[in-house]
Design a protein around this nucleic acid. Structure first.
Lengths: 129, 129
DNA sequence: TTTGATGCAAATGTTTTGCATGCAA
DNA sequence: TTGCATGCAAAACATTTGCATCAAA
């Protein structure tokens, strides 16, 4: 694979943030380092980096896909009030695959899970007087 | 809410099938009863029926949204080989909300889960000689 | 020099929406 | 008759792709 400045900027940005940006947000954030970069190139590199396992594409949330530079396995939380996406610190839920397989004649290979509710900030705001 | 023939056809079709159709598939299937129906009307009524709780919109799978006329809570399985979406017979996974809440300062209200792998048909095909 | 990566713009696929008309109440 | 629902078409939105050019190897 040939080196590209654009791909490096995209990966650097994703490694530097925990905010699970969309392709558009990635584009906006590498624009200062790459004034002529195009959104198509961002999409192409996000797809490529996902295939290489360098990043993760989050496809199961509402709205546009998001990208995660933290490629260690973890689950996500979406705030129903402000929309923020956060990483959850919790063990693997691999046991639920066995529960799914119990009455199922096919083969369960894995699961896709996210949680929703109110994020820490929105939860504490609700408690204010 | 005012009665409409189109909405009745859409609901009748969704109640009659277990195949989790897309809006386009719903449209194709009510076309014989409603020769002049438009795709926009199908979308409007699918959204309305979802808001009323009559049907469920499945938004977390790849590709276009799907609709489920079975509105009792259940989980879904997606075949990675043939793409079929099936209902799973398994108990609620509500305990995983507690696991997620354990190290989280916000409020977990629920989860969104689907499973993937090989469906019964594709699994048995793999075993053939 | 060669070939993969890019910028640009057009195309694609899905869903929503504006508006004039039609039909249920 | 009133106003919600419709059909139609255009718009909106996210993403992919064709193609000429550029730059890494």
């Amino acid at each position: 694979m040939k080196y590209s400045k654009q791909r490096e900027s995209i990966l650097k940005y994703l490694r530097s943030t925990k905010c699970h940006p969309t392709a558009e947000t990635v584009y906006q954030n590498i624009l200062s380092e790459n004034p002529n970069v195009s959104l198509g190139t961002v999409y192409r590199n996000l797809t490529l980096l996902t295939e290489l396992g360098e990043i993760t594409k989050i496809t199961d949330l509402a709205g546009p896909d998001r990208f995660d530079g933290n490629n260690t396995p973890h689950y996500h939380f979406v705030c129903k009030k402000c929309g923020v996406v956060l990483d959850l610190e919790m063990d693997s839920l691999s046991h639920i695959d066995l529960l799914a397989a119990h009455n199922f004649a096919g083969t369960i290979e894995g699961h896709c899970v996210h949680f929703y509710g109110k994020c820490p900030d929105c939860t504490s705001q609700n408690m204010e007087v």
